[in-house]
């Protein structure tokens, strides 16, 4: 098992290389990493202090469905190099709440939101 130091803050990408999030925190069972936690709620908890509380509470308020930090089971990790590569596509994971809200209410509604540049 990889040391936590090598995973923390690393970029997570899906099988096509699309960014999914950072490894903001880890879920450990004993000494074994069982899941990657990503999202600003997890990041704020690691920060600690007033700034950390602010980040967490802002992220919490934006998380309308109260799902908590996104959890990616470690089984989905295919390999780790300069990024953490998952074996699945990003569409199979739960979308981050802010990303989904923006898609439904703001950015996704602008004409052309489906065209790649």
């Amino acid at each position: 098992m990889l040391l936590a130091f090598d995973l923390l803050d690393r970029q997570i990408v899906d099988r096509d290389g699309t960014p999914v999030g950072k490894v903001d925190d880890l879920e450990l069972t004993g000494a074994v990493v069982t899941a990657l936690l990503t999202g600003q709620q997890a990041l704020g908890r690691r920060f600690g202090g007033a700034l950390g509380r602010w980040i967490t509470s802002t992220a919490y308020r934006l998380d309308v469905d109260r799902l908590g930090p996104r959890r990616i089971p470690y089984d989905l990790v295919a390999r780790v190099d300069s990024a953490v590569h998952l074996s699945v596509r990003v569409e199979l994971l739960d979308p981050p709440p802010l990303e989904r809200w923006l898609d439904e209410h703001l950015v996704g509604r602008i004409p052309g939101a489906d065209d790649a540049g």
Binding site: Q11, I12, T18, P19, V20, G21, K22, D24, T38, Q40, L43, V90, P96, L98, E99, L102, D103, L106, V107, G108, I110, G112, A113, D114, D115, A116, G117
Partner: peptide
């Protein structure tokens, strides 16, 4: 900003896939 938080970014993706970046 997107690279710090690990969000999807860039013009290769459909804007819908990178809404936070476009915001």
């Amino acid at each position: 900003v997107a690279q710090y938080f690990g969000w999807a970014w860039g013009k290769r993706l459909r804007p819908r896939q990178a809404t936070r970046f476009h915001l």
